[in-house]
């Protein structure tokens, strides 16, 4: 196994609120290897986006963060802000959620893509514009030279997603964090974006945040499942999604329309006062574990699950 490009160690992220600290990410450990697409799946509020934003240090200043995030051996959390600015965009690219609001409506798409090239690679006016057209072409926007001069409202949802991918790739980052790039797209467009993603990220590591299990299954080499701020299962995509070890992952898969549409009873717990013991225990049909908090245990080669079924102390 090659060395990890990104290592997250004991990451805790908390948001102070009048009601108490919301523990959005609780002791997350994660490695992302070179040229791997790691799918991070889980429901709304499970802490997927927070993890991505913590890596980029894009969380609001009063956020309580503990732990280590090492990128190529450097701890990003202790980097001064001006150093961090050089990492964002150039080393670690990002495709944010909501393609509709991620683009500035008053600048042309070409100008917005060129901005990254201007800032990080020092390209001048026409060079940068030329680069923007090249990038739009690479993400298969028809008529890229014309479309570069258009404003975001002229782009459909799928095209905006493509433009954002182009923007994220402008400086050829080694790591790309993509947050729900297929959200809100119809089936055909979604497949096109997934195909495009696979193609443009062949030589890159990608943290692919999604709640779309089908997309993760198609794209990811490994999959991590988050529940209530914790990683509850991680392993090879094929294994986790076809032979899940954790009761939550099983429940998530069984709730898919094509796999029986049986919902998990109850709803996600509060992150201010998470349930004692296993966080999934109030909704778990397999085992009642109110007293013990399970650790991640290897259940197969490179396949870990956080469940008392496997954790024997």
């Amino acid at each position: 196994m090659n060395a990890a490009l990104l290592e997250v160690r004991g990451l805790k992220v908390g948001f102070p609120t009048p009601d108490g600290l919301v523990r959005a990410s609780d002791t997350v450990d994660l490695e992302l290897y070179h040229r791997e697409i790691l799918g991070l799946i889980g429901e709304t509020g499970s802490g997927k986006t927070v993890l991505g934003m913590a890596i980029l240090r894009l969380l609001q200043p009063n956020t309580v963060i503990e732990g280590e995030i090492r990128y190529r051996g450097r701890d990003l959390l202790s980097l001064p802000e001006d150093e961090m600015r050089k990492v964002r965009g150039r080393e670690i690219g990002v495709v944010l959620q909501n393609s509709g609001t991620s683009l500035n409506p008053v600048y042309t798409v070409g100008d917005q893509i060129a901005e990254a090239a201007t800032l990080h690679q020092g390209l001048k006016g026409s060079e940068a514009r030329h680069r923007a057209v090249e990038l739009l072409d690479a993400v298969r926007i028809p008529d890229p030279a014309v479309m570069a001069r258009e404003y975001p409202h002229r782009f459909s949802g799928g095209m905006r997603e493509r433009a954002l991918i182009a923007m994220a790739l402008a400086c050829s980052p080694s790591l790309l964090i993509a947050d729900e790039p297929t959200k809100g797209l119809d089936a055909v467009t979604k497949r096109e974006i997934i195909d495009l993603f696979a193609e443009v990220n062949r030589d890159r590591s990608v943290l692919f945040i999604t709640h779309d299990i089908e997309a993760a299954a198609t794209l990811a080499t490994r999959v991590a499942v988050m529940y209530a701020g914790e990683i509850v299962e991680i392993g090879a995509a094929g294994e986790v999604l076809s032979d899940p070890a954790h009761p939550y992952t099983r429940g998530l898969l069984a709730s898919l329309p094509e796999r029986g549409m049986r919902p998990i009873p109850g709803s996600a717990p509060s992150l201010i006062t998470p349930p004692p013991g296993c966080r999934f225990s109030p909704r778990c049909a397999t085992k009642d574990c109110k007293s013990e908090h399970p650790g991640l245990v290897e259940v197969g080669p490179g396949h870990y699950a956080r469940c008392m079924l496997y954790d024997r102390g």
């Binding site: 709640h211 709730s255 549409m261 049986r262 919902p263 709803s267």
Partner: peptide
């Protein structure tokens, strides 16, 4: 249900 998580989607669809 297109804006909902799969397990919530299953609840609403049912």
């Amino acid at each position: 249900t297109s804006a909902l998580d799969v397990s919530v989607q299953a609840q609403i669809l049912n």
